[in-house]
Write a protein that binds this DNA or RNA. Structure first.
Lengths: 118, 118
DNA sequence: TTGACGCATGCCCATATAGGAATATGATGA
DNA sequence: TCATCATATTCCTATATGGGCATGCGTCAA
């Protein structure tokens, strides 16, 4: 077997630096393909291909606008990555225990609050 | 050009599910290769290969112990991933703004405290 | 209708796997 | 020294790229 498809999951999709760059750019707002082409300094077909991969894993969404196609970030697709790597944070973060305490307090407050939210 | 090498960076290294599994297992503590072989249900050579990739990006460290080789997690290598994906957290986390506020308060406290730490 | 513009696809090539099988390497015990 | 255990490395194969280039397709202006 060869390596897994880049469209297999978000981990594979963002393993490519260019695709992370694209997401970083889209974090600033919706953009047409040509914008990305110029900002990345890549050929238009390659950009379209990268966008396709990102689309297939749900990391971006498209919207037609005249002859342009506006791409928009969908950060939610990155949550699995965050969830996975989050558990390793305590490995390097010395302040993690302190943050931990704070979060516990937050939870406490919320519980005491009763169900007045959401 | 083909896809980037898995050893190019941690993103590529952990794009492979088996390697994430290995890291998850090592999160529980140091383990010899054979342990991983049995836990993963993979052939020994494949495990050694995955471990090599993880070693080359610094995600694990080895220590000889008799005829065994004990592998140990080095979560610090995952920090770049966490740093990158962290910025997208606000996309899906509704509580992010609240946490933000709390962290700001922490920073305030620290600043008011004067240099009494580290 | 025609031409131009903005994107998406299809094709070709070089490259890097991931797994399977066989073998090399290191350390240990008799 | 020799057999054995625990790992690492090598060789081989099928597969999935990512970039370059040409082309197809939908939309808009004249």
């Amino acid at each position: 077997m060869a390596r897994a498809a880049t469209t297999a999951d978000t981990f594979n999709a963002v393993a490519e630096p260019r695709r992370r760059q694209i997401l970083d750019l889209l974090a600033g707002g919706e953009r047409p393909v040509n914008d990305l082409v110029h900002l990345l300094g890549l050929a238009q077909p390659q950009v379209s291909k990268h966008l396709r991969v990102l689309r297939e894993v749900g990391a971006v969404q498209v919207r037609g606008d005249g002859r342009q196609r506006l791409y928009r970030l969908n950060g939610h697709a990155l949550k699995p990555i965050h969830d996975w790597v989050k558990n390793y944070e305590r490995t390097w973060s010395e302040r993690f225990d302190r943050l931990d305490a704070v979060l516990d307090e937050l939870k406490q407050e919320e519980d005491d609050d009763g169900g007045g939210h959401e």
